[in-house]
Write a protein that binds this DNA or RNA. Structure first.
Lengths: 198, 198, 198, 198
DNA sequence: AATGAATGAGAGTTCATTCAT
DNA sequence: GATGAATGAACTCTCATTCAT
């Protein structure tokens, strides 16, 4: 397999993101991706083992970049709350900016073989760890409640973001996704119950 | 097409739920479903238009039953908060009880054609409306905060439940899903911020 | 897989023999064989696991029939020499009659995977055993020389017949193959050395 | 095309003999042969027109050398019988020494296109002529029987040798091939019939 | 002469769907 | 209604060959 540098590798990944984003993984034919990338079908197999490996590499690269950028940004935040705000904002902004990738992440990754899903969830685990670290940090500093398990909180945060992106993707995308970041964080922090209703 | 009653119709739906739950929609062969249902392949096409219609009908029926039961139960609840608690509990309990169906709902529905997804989201909309009605009722009664959009709250609730089920499905399912209902509701209501940290 | 009875099974085998005989195993496309058999491509896979299995089945059936017929005929012969004459005659006659099959046996079987070749040579072993039994019977009766190993004699007999068929196939087939049976047997028995030249 | 000399030319032929001998002509990938020869894939096409030409050249060269050596040796033999002995011995010895080449000759040459097979049999014809010349010489000298056609005798000799080599190749090659030369010649000359059984 | 990345035609196989019985 | 053998379009992947460097 050729090295992962060079125009073609990138062109194929871009084409794959576009086609898969448009028609879904199963309906995305290698021939279409090749045409979109201005490359022969066989060329794809110089850079990727097979179709599944292409999807995996696509996710790996894009998500990896997102994670790296996110980590850098989180380092500039002081409090866990500030970190959470940045994470939520980045997640929604990124999905809004790269619709194709969001589509792949949200929709396509859930299908495919058990084996593939396994590998993909390993990649997601990095993201989960970042979220859980923020939560644990907040708990240690006495800012976040310790009586609810970190995992449940993480699932609320990720699930909410995920659902927000899904809704937005399935809608006509006429509203701004990232502008809902503030509301989401507010909800996470205080819930929707009016204070004196305990 | 035969009417939607009779042993075979049910047998096929059960078989479909089982096979799709096990191997996913795309890998679920009609021949396997037929064999599981003790029915000839062609028979399936007497009851369903095509494979996609089978998936759709499966979801429709199972989800419809869930919605009906849910509505009945919600009628016995007095406050919006109580209603929310019942909804969360039923959602998690139901997923835990019928793993195959949860698998289909969570994972398989997200793929497939735009057309199918469209129809499915119409079915989900019923559920969304139920959730949003509870929220609006709470807002009207001054129990729930009115400064956050109903849709965002709904997405948090559904997204969280969805993610909780997904996590549980991808895990070895060694923990009880429905036992986390209380924590989830607590989070929805008060958030995870310690009170004096405003 | 469907049962091995019925028109289609036979039609496919016949078509395969014809096409493979004409262009060789590797160049024999499933689509061509299907068209020749007046059958859809997929139908072939109802009767055979894959292309290789088709070749194997073809050989198995045809060669099996030949072996059965041969055994019956050998039972009517009294002396080992008479048996040898019948075997040689049948071998050449059969090849002459069914040119396609001869082609497959001689040429195509030698290629393909080690695995396939292994299976095929197991089938041939039946034939080898028949030849060797005749030789051993002759040795026991003191008619055939015991100072030369049965295997070497068998290889001479089979190799000679094989080569005669090969030559005939590669030639324009203008001469009668089976008419050389007598010469062949004469050679096997007495060699080509003039008697007083020891 | 480069001239048929030089290190690379030889290296490619050697590599081809090795790879083809191991996995067969059809499964022998140009890329593998190139790697084995420490040469770029494209380089092979500087020395050979295509894959088929490579196989042909391989046979041509190796078989040509064998023929030249054989002719030289036959010149030192006085009687036709002595010549036959030398030919049989050389044939078996050569096959035993260069297993890869034997494999190619026996197995791979039989497949491939009609066109290729045609060219190859032209090369073999040289060998056939040598054998037939020995037979005719023997007939003229009254040593060999004139009542059996030269071609049939030649086919017996070549077919027997061929089958002996084939058997040996398909076996685990635990026995000595060349040691059976004497038995073979004995069979050719006197047949396997005990003398007083005419 | 030498390279090896790129090409793209080609072929086996799968499987949802049909239809004669 | 029920069957299941038959269909054939669709699609991934291979690999001999080319050609710009």
């Amino acid at each position: 397999m050729a090295k992962k540098s060079g125009d073609k590798y990138e062109a194929i990944l871009d084409a794959a993101a576009k086609i898969i984003g448009e028609v879904g993984y199963h309906k995305a034919q290698i021939s279409k991706i090749a045409r979109e990338a201005n490359v022969a079908e066989g060329t794809i197999y110089l850079y990727f083992e097979n179709k599944q490996d292409l999807l995996l590499s696509l996710f790996q690269k894009r998500f990896g970049e997102f994670i790296v950028n996110l980590k850098n940004e989180l380092n500039t935040a002081k409090t866990p709350l500030e970190k959470l705000r940045k994470l939520v904002t980045r997640h929604l902004e990124n999905s809004e900016k790269d619709r194709n990738f969001a589509q792949v992440t949200q929709i396509e990754l859930r299908q495919a073989d058990r084996a593939l899903r396994q590998k993909l969830s390993e990649l997601l685990r990095d993201y989960f760890t970042i979220i859980e670290n923020i939560i644990d940090e907040g708990k240690e500093q006495g800012i976040f409640r310790s009586d609810i398990s970190t995992k449940v909180i993480r699932r609320m945060i990720f699930g909410t973001l995920d659902e927000m992106v899904s809704s937005w993707l399935l809608s006509s995308r006429q509203y701004s996704l990232s502008k809902q970041a503030k509301d989401a964080v507010e909800l996470f922090c205080h819930g929707f119950l009016v204070k004196n209703n305990d």
